[in-house]
């Protein structure tokens, strides 16, 4: 049976209900785990004997592989279930899928699902630890955590920083996790994007709203550029990708128009030439690949904490039992 973890509780479904201390515990725990991925032999026995299912109802490359590396480097036994090729396409309900997995006595489930609330739904119904790898437009907590770790790595702090999320906030689970996490850690957070892609009453989450990207860039120290999905254009939220790039794209000209160095993040996968121009994405202030590296460490930290580990013993744990 999985242990109920003292630091995060049984599950990680979002950052909304975590405390500042819990978020910092994950970031601090991720620090010692970073080093494992730099070794020749990238494996420690922290989760030996634990079985984990990566249950992906939506296509995902980066997040799924990142979780899988985190799990394998901690010696867990893992199974990947993708929606296509599983019983999901045969009409099995989410709850039946969960119960069947549970009947095989798994310890943890990492779930990616197109419906907001799906991770919580699962967490309330099975005793295994559940980790949300993205549910609809709700949250993507490990992405929020790795974004914060990356910002802290580079700038040394989160508190007091001005961070702006740029783009399709309406459909973005990354935006919501960033907003919860960053505001809890004391950052000033703003959002910027076309008003058609801005959720109602977003200000009530404690963020300021910029309608023009130039104003956002003028204000911010960190830009987290959100992916614009092609189907948003088809659904009519923006007239064309070209216009989107013209009005909201994070371009070199816009970034260089301010005298400060802007830290540039992007959760990936990028649409180069749409929400972000290549010379920004590949430029000196981009930490987009650092985010990917940190993703593995953060996910190790989450797995470790949910399995009952304590932040202060992470350093010891990775060297043995």
């Amino acid at each position: 049976m999985p242990t109920s973890a003292p630091y995060l509780g049984k599950d990680l479904v979002g950052l909304e209900h975590l405390t500042r201390e819990q978020i910092l515990a994950v970031l601090d725990t991720a620090e010692p785990f970073k080093e494992i991925s730099e070794r020749q032999i990238k494996k420690v026995p922290v989760l030996r004997g634990k079985t984990i299912v990566n249950l992906f109802f939506e296509p995902s490359t980066r997040t799924r592989i990142s979780f899988e590396f985190a799990e394998k480097r901690l010696s867990a036994d893992t199974v990947n279930v993708a929606a296509s090729g599983s019983s999901v396409v045969k009409g099995e309900t989410l709850v039946d899928t969960a119960r069947n997995l549970e009947a095989m006595r798994i310890d943890m489930v990492v779930i990616r699902h197109g419906s907001s609330g799906a991770a919580r739904f699962l967490a309330e119904r099975i005793p295994s630890n559940v980790i949300n790898a993205g549910d609809g437009r709700h949250e993507h907590p490990t992405q929020g955590l790795l974004d914060m770790l990356t910002i802290r790595d580079r700038l040394g702090r989160i508190e007091g920083l001005r961070v702006c999320l740029v783009g399709d906030v309406l459909h973005s689970r990354v935006a919501r996790s960033n907003i919860w996490g960053l505001t809890k850690l004391g950052a000033e957070v703003a959002v910027c994007g076309p008003p058609t892609l801005m959720p109602r009453e977003i200000e009530a989450l404690g963020v300021r709203v910029f309608k023009r990207v130039e104003e956002a860039i003028e204000w911010a120290e960190v830009l987290n550029v959100l992916r614009l999905q092609l189907e948003r254009m088809q659904a009519g939220y923006v007239p064309s990708l070209r216009e989107y790039n013209r009005v909201y794209g994070v371009s070199r000209e816009r970034v260089e128009a301010v005298p400060r160095d802007l830290l540039i993040l992007h959760p990936g996968p990028m649409n180069r030439g749409v929400e972000i121009d290549s010379d920004v994405a590949d430029g000196p202030h981009s930490v987009i690949l650092n985010q990917v590296t940190n993703g593995v460490a953060v996910r190790m930290a989450v797995l470790y904490l949910l399995a009952g580990g304590a932040p202060e013993t992470a350093e010891v744990a990775k060297h043995g039992e």
Binding site: S116, G117, R137, R173, R200, L205
Partner: peptide, 15 residues
């Protein structure tokens, strides 16, 4: 309903 709760929960709102 479209409003703060739908924004928080990431659910599509009906205005």
């Amino acid at each position: 309903n479209e409003g703060l709760v739908s924004t928080r929960l990431g659910l599509v709102g009906i205005p």
